[in-house]
């Protein structure tokens, strides 16, 4: 074997070159351009069948896509149960057959993972909403409005509170709109997963407002 002689100076230089080239993982991350970009939906379609691990990584913390998916997961099923429990406790609806000349409004489930100010998931929430967009003004509802405070009023009171060293507290009404009594007649379909056995063709007559109804914000206010 032939010996290669390297002077100490060269050695130092080459080692310097190496250290200069060594990047931390963070540098690498910031300096690397993505090779290509794809929409999440495309990825979902491609990986759906074959690669469950990729899928799991992608959607570990996502909202479910449809009812079947939600019903399989305990945390979402709990959320669904909670919403139905609340609606029923509130006397929101009664099961009737649809009178002639009326149309029932469709309903759907909306899933949301609620996050706090830091972006961590606080709780899982399912909300039954009506497809209020099929309602017609003048026929199904009259006025629409909701109580809101002016932002300047809010800032003024915050400033007052700061000056007086008062503390500001915050409360939320749970399922706000379910508290509003509606005057108009409204019928909705039975929600997916909670249909009454043997009476699947019946509809629900609303006593209280549901989310998505055009008159819901007003009903809450009056």
């Amino acid at each position: 074997m032939k010996e290669v002689k390297v002077s100490p100076k060269e050695l130092r230089e080459s080692s310097e070159r190496i250290t200069k080239r060594t990047w931390s993982l963070q540098d690498l991350y910031h300096n690397t351009e993505p090779l290509s970009q794809r929409r999440l939906e495309d990825l979902y379609e491609e990986t759906g069948e074959t690669d469950n691990i990729t899928l799991f990584c992608l959607f570990a913390d996502c909202e479910p896509m449809n009812f079947e998916e939600a019903a399989q997961d305990k945390k979402w099923r709990d959320a669904l149960d909670e919403e139905i429990r609340f609606i029923e406790k509130n006397n929101t609806w009664e099961l009737v057959s649809l009178p002639k000349g009326h149309k029932s409004i469709g309903v759907k489930w909306v899933y949301q993972a609620k996050k706090n100010a830091k972006g961590e998931i606080e709780r899982y929430k399912a909300r039954l909403v009506t497809k209020g967009y099929s309602q017609k003004a003048g026929i199904d509802y009259d006025e629409v409005f909701a109580p809101v405070a002016h932002l300047e009023t809010i800032r003024l009171i915050v400033s007052l509170a700061a000056q007086q060293k008062w503390k500001i507290h915050h409360m939320d009404v749970k399922s706000t709109f379910l508290n509003g009594v509606i005057e108009e007649e409204a019928y909705i379909e039975q929600p997916l997963g909670y249909k009454v056995k043997g009476q699947e063709d019946k509809v629900l007559k609303l006593n209280k407002a549901l989310y998505g109804l055009k008159q819901a914000p007003r009903a809450w206010y009056t």
Binding site: A146, I154, L160, I168, H169, H170, D172, W220
Partner: peptide, 19 residues
């Protein structure tokens, strides 16, 4: 002092017992 923003309820005042 209480103010309402749809379903949010914010209140402040000078007596914590009142809260």
């Amino acid at each position: 002092i209480v103010w309402i923003y749809v379903d949010g309820l914010i209140f402040t005042g000078n007596n914590p017992n009142m809260f």
